[in-house]
């Protein structure tokens, strides 16, 4: 089988993603200084998830990888959800 070669991602794409990451960092810091109560932590996690997706799909080239790699990520996320979810069913209803 011929090795599937990735097209180089243009420099410009990476720089745009970097600017988006910096902007999201500023948003996280600013929003964290405003009181939203318990929502603060969920907002922080939401922004961190968006930043992670940018890093994973573009910086780490996941966008260009085959479906196998994406299914792998999905399985990881399901495992994490079970891991965290089951821990909290224990913690919250003790």
């Amino acid at each position: 089988m011929e090795e599937h070669k990735h097209e180089p991602v243009p420099y410009r794409t990476f720089i745009k993603v970097w600017i988006a990451l910096l902007a999201l960092t500023v948003v996280t810091v600013v929003v964290s200084r405003i009181h939203f109560g318990a929502a603060n932590i969920w907002i922080a996690l939401g922004i961190a998830s968006v930043k992670s997706s940018l890093v994973i799909f573009i910086f780490m080239h996941l966008r260009q990888e085959s479906r196998l790699f994406k299914i792998g990520l999905l399985i990881l996320l399901v495992i994490l959800a079970i891991f965290i979810g089951l821990t909290f069913t224990d913690i919250l209803y003790r």
């Binding site: 960092t25 996280t28 810091v29 964290s32 200084r33 405003i34 009181h35 603060n40 932590i41 922080a44 996690l45 922004i47 961190a48 930043k51 992670s52 890093v55």
Partner: peptide, 12 residues
């Protein structure tokens, strides 16, 4: 670090 930073440094 993307998760560590807000969780440890930015709790209000």
């Amino acid at each position: 670090w993307i998760f560590l930073f807000p969780l440890y440094y930015l709790i209000l």
